[in-house]
């Protein structure tokens, strides 16, 4: 009896996990929707449509995402944010059903911060990527009913001294990409552009230009992806993750780069 009591301390390795804590104390806070049984009708349509991408460059990783959410054939939102800071050295780009995706991003942020505070040190990038895979797996029942969440996770790995990119499938399968990846309804089109334009060891300016070109192409081909909105001044969000942390590329810089790309195309099409 007393043995069991002290041994529980060792068995409970999930002590520093926020998700396990919520599961144990207040499971109603966890985003679990639907049972996944085929008899149950599919959940009503929720905002969808995305292109998010991550590109490796000299100092780390650059992530970009469009700003539009769609609901069927309607624009649901024009200024939605799809790239979130997960912690100082990593970011998450959400693709899939907007509600569950944003909730997962928030839960993941809390998970990382909670671990850091309880343990007194950061999870490794590998550990963070695996943790996110487990959270996506938790969402499988809802995914089977149409509420898919398939984020991109990217970060700076202090051990390897460079950026790393992870993609996921709906079952929580985790795959590492060595150069770039794009996810979402316009992901395929963005990947086509990235494939042609990606170079090893790019500077930040080059990476920004390549990423924005991919975003422009995705917006042209995919109705779910929003292009640069010159009227309202809405441009894709771009973040960088380097040794010195998670940073935002200012709107002005993105606007200038976008305009340069558009100007280069003028008269060519």
């Amino acid at each position: 009896m007393t043995d069991e009591r002290w041994q529980a301390v060792f068995a409970n390795y999930a002590n520093s996990s926020f998700v396990e804590l919520v599961r144990g104390t207040s499971p109603h806070l966890l985003p679990t929707l639907g049972s996944g049984s085929p008899e149950e009708p599919a959940l009503p349509a929720a905002p969808h449509g995305t292109t998010v991408l991550a590109v490796r460059y000299r100092d780390g990783v650059l992530m970009a995402g469009d700003r539009q959410a769609t609901e069927g054939f309607q624009v649901a939102h024009r200024r939605i944010e799809k790239i979130y800071k997960a912690d100082d050295l990593s970011g998450i780009g959400i693709a899939g059903a907007a509600g569950p995706s944003m909730e997962m991003a928030r839960l993941f942020q809390t998970e990382l911060e909670h671990y850091e505070k309880v343990e007194g040190e950061n999870l490794s990038l590998e550990g963070k990527a695996n943790r996110l895979a487990q959270m996506i797996r938790m969402n499988l029942p809802a995914a089977l009913q149409g509420l898919v969440v398939v984020p991109i996770f990217a970060g700076f790995d202090e051990k390897t001294g460079g950026g790393r990119i992870f993609k996921y499938d709906i079952t929580g399968g985790r795959y590492e990409e060595t150069e770039y990846f794009a996810q979402g309804s316009g992901g395929k089109d963005a990947r086509d552009t990235l494939k042609k334009r990606y170079r090893k060891d790019m500077t930040k300016e080059q990476a920004l230009s390549v990423a924005l070109e991919a975003m422009l192409d995705a917006a042209e081909e995919d109705i779910g992806t929003g292009g640069p909105d010159l009227l309202r001044g809405i441009f894709p969000t771009v973040k960088t993750i380097t040794r010195s942390g998670f940073g935002e590329v200012p709107d002005d810089e993105v606007r200038t780069a976008c305009e340069a790309l558009l100007a280069a195309r003028k008269g060519q099409v």
Binding site: F18, L29, R106, T110, H114, K117, V118
Partner: peptide, 10 residues
């Protein structure tokens, strides 16, 4: 930490 993170999350 648990109390604070739970409260902040909910």
């Amino acid at each position: 930490v648990r109390h604070a993170d739970l409260k902040g999350y909910s």
